[in-house]
Amino acid sequence: MTGTMTHFTQERAPCGRLVDGDRSQDDDLEGLRFDDLHYACGCRKIRHEFHDGSVRIRTIRHDGKILLDEHSGDHEA
Rank of each mutant, 00 (worst) to 15 (best):
S54D: 14
D22E: 09
D20P: 03
E49R: 12
L37R: 02
F50K: 12
E30A: 11
L37E: 07
D20C: 07
F50W: 13
I46N: 05
L37N: 00
Q10C: 06
R47D: 08
S54T: 15
D20V: 06
L29P: 01
Y39I: 04
Q10A: 14
D20M: 04
L18N: 14
G42N: 05
D69I: 04
C15A: 10
S54M: 06
V19T: 15
R44T: 04
R33L: 09
D20K: 08
D20I: 06
D26T: 15
K65Q: 13
I60V: 15
G73T: 06
G3W: 09
A77K: 12
H38Q: 13
H71Y: 08
H71R: 05
S72M: 04
D52M: 05
R17G: 05
G31W: 11
G42Q: 07
G42E: 02
H48T: 14
T2A: 12
D28P: 01
G42I: 06
F50Q: 11
C41T: 04
I46C: 02
Y39H: 10
G3P: 01
G16Y: 03
C41D: 10
C43M: 03
H75Y: 09
H51Y: 05
G73V: 02
G3R: 11
T6Q: 11
H38M: 08
S54W: 07
G73A: 13
D26Q: 14
G64Y: 00
E30L: 09
E76M: 07
L37S: 06
H51D: 12
F8P: 00
